[in-house]
Simulated assay, not measured.
Amino acid sequence: MKLCFLVEEHYRHDGMPNEVIRQLQSWGHQVDVLRPGGSLLRMTEALRAGSHDAWVLKTVSGGPGLTLLEAAASAGLTTVNDARSIRRVRDKALAAAIGRSRGLPVPPTYAAARPELLAELPASEYPLVVKPADGSSGRAVHLVASPDRLAAMAPELAREGLLIAQPYVANSGIDLKVYCVDGEFYATERCSPLHPELGVRERRVPLPAEVAAIAGQVGAVYGLDLYGVDVLLGPDGPVVVDVNDFPSFRQVPDAVARVARAVLGLAGGGRAPVPAPVHVPATAGESA
């Protein structure tokens, strides 16, 4: 099988996906690597029909890789994940709207092109979590305690483009990260980016049945095969605070081989099995 991996400079030396690429090569598959952020893209030549069995994206949000992946999809080529699904979750404003409308426990979400527009939110919505709509890896996530603090942060936030704001959901400061690979779920716990002072190291933990049901519904709602879900346990139950396409899969046992096998299965036209969606009332995501 011949595969093309789109790998952003940010992940140039990262174990995921480089170890997956080496695993696929060791199994006898040809893997070409394009670095869309560090090379001239000859768009009209890169997508020759039949040149690759599948295209795989591992790039930062907002990078040029997704454009190339979408071009491949528009030419009828197989992509991992589906390019439209990646777009749905990389735009966090769009992801929140889709998720909440489909019954996922997503907090109420506001979007603003300029930080000063968030001043329209009533004081009762504070504290707020404010972050860029195209953020990734915990970049520029802020816990904003009051309208005065929001006003003071406006110059910093103005550099981030479209912003989203969500009422803070009271929690322990520990997030659950659920990874889905080849239809199986693995849970880890780690410090929330809002509470790095806790110093909790990421580790595997048992996956609660309620969270597993939500993670399965996430795949069905967004159309993802390889993904991660950030969940926090609020006073009203689990809350989905982020969804990532092709995450790190840290702490997943035998992650490299599992991801490599999943890529091959998806490249061959199959899809990793996803549990049937379980309806979760939207009100479960309301903050305390």
Score class of each variant (00 low, 15 high):
3 L>R: 07
3 L>S: 07
5 F>A: 08
5 F>M: 11
6 L>K: 05
7 V>R: 12
7 V>Y: 09
8 E>N: 13
9 E>P: 03
10 H>L: 08
11 Y>I: 06
12 R>G: 00
13 H>D: 15
13 H>S: 13
13 H>G: 04
17 P>M: 05
18 N>H: 11
18 N>S: 13
19 E>I: 00
21 I>P: 10
23 Q>N: 09
24 L>M: 15
24 L>N: 06
24 L>D: 06
25 Q>I: 03
27 W>C: 01
29 H>V: 01
30 Q>N: 05
30 Q>R: 13
31 V>G: 01
33 V>E: 12
34 L>V: 13
34 L>R: 11
35 R>S: 07
37 G>M: 00
38 G>N: 12
39 S>M: 12
41 L>V: 13
41 L>A: 08
42 R>C: 05
42 R>E: 11
42 R>F: 11
43 M>C: 02
46 A>Q: 13
47 L>M: 07
48 R>S: 12
49 A>G: 10
50 G>P: 08
51 S>L: 06
51 S>I: 07
52 H>K: 13
52 H>I: 03
57 L>Q: 12
57 L>T: 07
58 K>Y: 14
59 T>G: 09
59 T>L: 00
60 V>N: 08
60 V>R: 14
62 G>I: 12
62 G>C: 10
62 G>Q: 10
64 P>T: 11
66 L>C: 09
66 L>K: 08
67 T>N: 12
68 L>G: 00
68 L>T: 06
68 L>H: 05
69 L>T: 08
70 E>K: 15
70 E>A: 13
71 A>T: 07
74 S>E: 10
75 A>T: 04
76 G>T: 08
77 L>F: 04
77 L>K: 04
78 T>A: 12
78 T>I: 14
78 T>N: 12
78 T>V: 15
82 D>Q: 12
83 A>N: 04
84 R>G: 14
84 R>E: 14
85 S>W: 04
86 I>C: 00
87 R>E: 11
89 V>S: 04
89 V>H: 04
91 D>E: 09
92 K>L: 03
93 A>S: 14
93 A>Q: 11
97 A>G: 07
97 A>I: 04
98 I>P: 13
100 R>H: 01
101 S>T: 13
101 S>D: 14
102 R>C: 14
103 G>K: 09
103 G>D: 09
104 L>Q: 02
105 P>C: 03
105 P>K: 06
106 V>C: 03
107 P>D: 10
108 P>E: 15
108 P>T: 09
110 Y>W: 14
110 Y>S: 11
111 A>Y: 13
111 A>K: 12
111 A>N: 09
112 A>G: 02
115 P>W: 06
117 L>I: 11
117 L>Y: 14
118 L>E: 03
118 L>Y: 01
119 A>F: 03
119 A>Q: 15
121 L>N: 07
121 L>K: 07
122 P>G: 01
124 S>G: 05
125 E>A: 15
126 Y>R: 04
126 Y>H: 07
126 Y>P: 11
127 P>S: 05
127 P>V: 04
128 L>S: 03
129 V>G: 01
130 V>W: 09
130 V>A: 10
131 K>R: 14
131 K>C: 00
132 P>A: 04
132 P>C: 06
132 P>K: 06
133 A>R: 07
133 A>Q: 01
133 A>E: 04
138 G>K: 00
138 G>L: 00
138 G>T: 01
138 G>E: 01
138 G>D: 01
